[in-house]
């Protein structure tokens, strides 16, 4: 382990220790809950876009399904919350498998179809029988409200998703995914099974936001179609991950911490201009830092590869 790696691991350990004691400190619990939520979302998104090059514009659908599965199972079937959250992950992954044929599409075609699927799901959920989904009013989970426990669940999921990205990046699967991203046809000629490897990445990238959705539903104790399938969830996930640096391990973490902090700061001071400023940040990002923080740093200091990648 070189000194850059040692420093990186020490920083991560310190950050995790801080997040662990946050509930004991006089700081906003929701702020840090959502920071971990966005880190988790950005890390998961990185697997399918950063490593494989597929841009799912309807990524919110996994999060949305996760929120509803947990809420419906707990409120209608009295399933304990941890089991309901686990079921959210399973059903989100099953949904990814069901829509996997769309992975044959590439580029903007895949993005548009995925976006359309998220819209269809939102309408479907909103039109489920009222006694199941609560229609446009949604479902309240106030009797299950345990902010502290759900906070630690999110901390656990964030660590798990970070480790998953690290494993993917260092594994043979990670090399295969990067090959597919760069040139799927050439990867295939070299013996890489493109559909199978792509599907693995897609299912991992779907499972994580589905579980995150379940935990977030528990934390807020309310779900409704407009919030659960809000396209801003996709937009923010993309922007946060890109700002940090897609295809790197640490980039989306940096991106989510920085951009969520900035977003929260702007929201607190300029509530009306919040989206305008976010839009300007996206323009700035695409124009001046298309590789994100980690990608730009890597280009300038290639020796950081061991830490960043």
């Amino acid at each position: 382990m070189n000194r850059y790696s040692a420093l990186a691991w020490a920083s991560i350990a310190a950050g995790l220790a801080f997040l662990f004691v946050v509930p004991l400190l006089p700081v906003s619990l929701p702020y840090f809950f959502y920071m971990m939520f966005w880190i988790t979302m950005a890390c998961a998104f990185n697997i399918i876009y950063g490593f494989v090059g597929y841009l799912p514009f309807g990524y919110v659908m996994f999060y949305g399904v996760g929120t509803y599965v947990t809420a419906v199972l707990w409120s209608r079937f009295h399933v304990p919350i941890p089991a309901a959250i686990l079921a959210s992950g399973c059903i989100g992954t099953a949904l990814a498998l069901a829509v996997a044929p769309t992975l044959r599409l590439r580029g903007i075609y895949f993005a548009i179809v995925n976006f359309a699927m998220a819209m269809v799901l939102r309408i479907l959920v909103a039109n489920l029988p009222f006694e199941w989904s609560g229609g446009s009013f949604g479902i309240t989970l106030s009797r299950a409200y345990r902010p502290l426990t759900s906070y630690y669940f999110m901390l656990g999921l964030m660590v798990l998703s970070g480790l998953t990205v690290l494993w993917v990046s260092r594994s043979r699967l990670g090399v295969a995914l990067r090959c597919i991203r760069d040139d799927a046809a050439a990867a295939s000629v070299l013996g890489i099974n493109v559909p199978v490897n792509r599907l693995k990445a897609w299912m991992i990238a779907a499972a994580i936001p589905s579980v995150a959705g379940g935990i977030e539903a528990w934390f807020t104790a309310i779900v409704d179609p407009a919030t659960s399938f809000n396209m801003m969830v996709t937009a923010k996930t993309i922007v946060y991950a890109m700002f940090g640096g897609l295809g790197t391990v640490i980039g989306p973490v940096f991106g989510a911490v920085f951009m969520y902090g900035l977003d929260d700061f702007i929201w607190g001071r300029f509530p009306v201009l919040n989206l305008l400023v976010l839009g300007l940040m996206i323009v700035f990002l695409i124009l001046f830092m298309p590789r994100g923080i980690a990608g730009t740093a890597l280009r300038k200091w290639p020796r950081l590869r061991q830490v960043v990648k």
């Binding site: 090399v175 295969a176 990067r178 090959c179 760069d182 050439a186 990867a187 070299l190 013996g191 890489i192």
Partner: peptide, 13 residues
């Protein structure tokens, strides 16, 4: 593969 290292390119098959 342009965005992966030369050694990973060799190891890809």
């Amino acid at each position: 593969f342009k965005k992966i290292s030369v050694i990973d390119n060799v190891l890809a098959p």
